[in-house]
Simulated assay, not measured.
Amino acid sequence: MIATFPTTLASQIEDLLPQTQCTKCGYPACRPYAEAIAAGQASYNQCPPGGEEGVARLARLLGKPVIALNPENGVERPRPLAIIDENLCIGCTLCLQACPVDAIVGAAKQMHTVIPELCTGCDLCVPPCPVDCIAMITVTGDKTGWDAWTQPQADAARIRHDQHLARLARERDAAEARKAARVAGSAKPVEPAISGDRVVKTAAATPEDEAQAKKRAIIQAAMERARKKKEELAKLGAAPKNIDSVSPEVQAQIDAAEARRRRLGLTDVNSEPDSDSANDPDA
């Protein structure tokens, strides 16, 4: 006999949300919003992508009356699609970092593009773009809310967001491993100490030391692969067209964002290292 477990109220609420992960509800993603509704900390009319139909669905589940969408959270609208102007893109990666479903493809100093089938129209990539090269184009005509968004699309977006969070967790773990490897690599070996006729034995290499050395080797190999990949892409001309006209103010904004990523441990080993940090596994 297969054991079954009751679905929590938060999970039932989450199942009814459009999973655009747009944060317009005032929460960082659809799941935290669902948990807040279940806990009585948020109202069920704060999701503009769900629109009136979304409010009605939640009202039926919660046994509450249908109310108007809260205008403070936004308005119901046709679903937009993010489009990147390649003539203006500078390859700063800020839009990649903002996308909650990894719908943007690109790398540092490489051309970025949006995968239309994956974009949820959340708008989150627009504010961080320092050169305003991202436009939100309506793709559903007059259809709004759930009329402009299907359940299969919502389910797929939810899976991609979960994968996005898992990737960030892996990057943080990798950053911690690089830091540990760096600390282990900088430790100086202890020389044997002579005391009278006795020789004080030094500590032998531990399994942890060997593991850290292996991690350092893996990181160096990954960085070398990234360097070769960058050279190959450069030969194909896969580079932004506007990179030479970046102002000092915009470059300072990009540098600040990358510094925040490094502090948070979100810098990927496959990203482009600076010349000063090419030999630093923790950079």
Rank of each mutant, 00 (worst) to 15 (best):
13 I>E: 00
14 E>D: 15
15 D>F: 13
16 L>Q: 06
17 L>H: 02
17 L>Q: 04
18 P>I: 07
20 T>L: 03
20 T>K: 04
20 T>P: 01
20 T>V: 07
21 Q>S: 06
22 C>A: 14
22 C>V: 01
23 T>V: 12
23 T>L: 14
24 K>L: 15
25 C>R: 00
25 C>L: 07
26 G>F: 02
28 P>F: 09
29 A>V: 08
32 P>Y: 04
33 Y>K: 14
33 Y>T: 11
34 A>Q: 03
39 A>P: 11
40 G>V: 07
40 G>E: 06
41 Q>E: 15
41 Q>K: 15
42 A>V: 01
42 A>R: 08
42 A>W: 02
43 S>P: 08
43 S>R: 15
44 Y>P: 10
45 N>T: 12
46 Q>M: 15
48 P>W: 04
48 P>M: 05
48 P>G: 03
48 P>H: 03
49 P>S: 06
49 P>H: 12
49 P>E: 06
50 G>C: 02
50 G>S: 00
51 G>M: 01
52 E>H: 11
53 E>G: 09
54 G>W: 08
55 V>P: 05
57 R>M: 04
58 L>G: 10
59 A>P: 00
60 R>I: 10
62 L>S: 05
63 G>V: 01
65 P>F: 10
65 P>D: 07
66 V>K: 13
66 V>H: 10
67 I>C: 08
67 I>F: 04
72 E>N: 11
72 E>D: 14
74 G>V: 03
77 R>E: 09
81 L>K: 08
83 I>R: 14
84 I>A: 02
86 E>D: 14
86 E>S: 15
87 N>F: 11
88 L>H: 10
88 L>T: 14
91 G>I: 04
91 G>L: 01
91 G>C: 12
94 L>V: 01
95 C>S: 02
96 L>I: 02
96 L>H: 00
97 Q>H: 13
97 Q>I: 12
98 A>E: 01
100 P>E: 05
102 D>M: 05
102 D>S: 13
103 A>H: 03
103 A>V: 11
103 A>P: 13
104 I>K: 00
105 V>R: 13
107 A>G: 15
108 A>M: 12
109 K>S: 13
111 M>A: 15
112 H>T: 05
113 T>Y: 14
113 T>W: 10
115 I>G: 07
118 L>T: 11
118 L>W: 10
121 G>W: 08
121 G>A: 02
121 G>T: 08
122 C>I: 08
122 C>S: 06
123 D>M: 14
125 C>D: 00
127 P>H: 06
128 P>N: 10
128 P>R: 00
130 P>E: 05
130 P>F: 00
131 V>W: 08
132 D>N: 15
